[in-house]
Design a protein around this nucleic acid. Structure first.
Lengths: 215, 215
DNA sequence: AGTCAAGGGTTAATTTAATTTACAATTGCG
DNA sequence: CGCAATTGTAAATTAAATTAACCCTTGACT
């Protein structure tokens, strides 16, 4: 049984936002906040925030509000940001490398343990602390180091083949930047977060057309 | 009046997916498809596809199905992928450059006309066809070349200042990779597409914890 | 030509989810 | 000790997404 079955996906998607804003407030030195103040900052309503949080338990105090530090810690625990799952990157192109250089994986529950690519030009090069390995060694690596998560920045044509191999070797989640919709393939038991940047850009295209027509 | 007021955001967000799959089918040489077949491929139901498309008009033929090429063209027209809006990139770090190198902007309604950064180390360097310019020249550049869209890959602290300057100089839409939620600031008249990769990664963290607990 | 099966257009019905409202219960503070 | 603030929570409301149903057109086959 999953920990939080029945909590809707939209609530889950708001948690990282709460976490992000709370982290900023904490950094500013604030100690407590009411749902109303928080709502103004984050752009929601007070009751929605209270209701979202109550899906997971009561983290506030009546008459006082929420303690920023402890609420932040609670949401971090719900999101499992301390898990430090062994994670690999497959595909060391521009995008993959940008992610390695930019993302604070350790602050979000992931620990990078390997980078793979098929391009002989790239294999052997070192990015930060990691040496790019031949994707041919992927299965052997999995059997030795047991990654739980994988970041896919590879061409669509090889995405399914690669993902299947990883699933068979124990990977439980994908951060998927390929054009292949993996969520269609793995219905249960595997977590997939698709990031379709192209779709996002086209949505923007539509919305720009809308606001320009509205004038 | 906007062109498609009243069409819900979730329908809009499905359009790029339709467009993407139709493009693949077209590339495979297929000519026609029924809503049922398409539903199986894309992972939805036939009637949802019919209903989504009917928000914009009737593109199919009863007893025949949809002509793939013309449906693809229609959706492209709705999404405005032929607009070729003058677009700038602000922030030439790893992520910004990965986007420039990877995204097919021209296929999605955008034409890159300039790249800006504040780092003297970067200014002057050439990426593909574009020379990185000093962000101090941003306003002058806008007044001369009138960009309509901007891709923001800059630190949170300068995001609002930069966005305000661009809005004042006619920019109508942002593809926002900063941690600053711009959609809170610009309610109407400006299109904002936030891409919070950190939030996406945390959502994955939650979902991996869920599937692992479910076992 | 005529018949029939296939399949989209369209409206209605259903289900589900998101949101708001409301108020009792609790706490901090003066 | 009492008041103002503010959460917890359930109920009510609203909105949206989804499914179902059926008519109508089209193309294919005889």
């Amino acid at each position: 049984m999953a920990r939080y079955e029945g909590v809707s996906a939209s609530v889950i998607r708001r948690l990282p936002r709460y976490y992000r804003f709370l982290g900023e407030l904490k950094a500013k030195g604030m100690e407590r906040i009411s749902s109303r103040e928080f709502a103004d900052i984050i752009g929601l309503t007070a009751s929605q925030i209270r209701q979202d949080l109550n899906c997971f338990g009561g983290f506030g105090q009546q008459g006082y509000g929420y303690n920023i530090e402890s609420l932040c810690a609670e949401i971090g625990r719900i999101l499992n940001v301390d898990a430090l799952r062994p994670t690999i990157l497959v595909g060391a192109g521009n995008l993959g490398l940008a992610l390695v250089n930019h993302m604070r994986f350790e602050a979000r529950g992931f620990r990078l343990i390997g980078i793979f690519d098929s391009d002989p030009e790239k294999i052997g090069h070192t990015i930060r602390d990691w040496q790019i390995q031949d994707v041919a060694r992927l299965e052997a690596f999995c059997q030795e180091h047991h990654p739980l998560a994988a970041i896919l920045c590879i061409p669509k044509q090889v995405a399914v083949e690669c993902a299947d191999l990883l699933v068979q070797n124990g990977v439980k989640g994908f951060w998927n930047f390929t054009h292949q919709d993996l969520s269609i393939i793995y219905k249960d038991g595997i977590a997939v977060e698709n990031v379709h940047l192209g779709d996002s850009l086209m949505t923007l295209s539509f919305n720009i057309a809308e606001v320009m027509d509205a004038e």
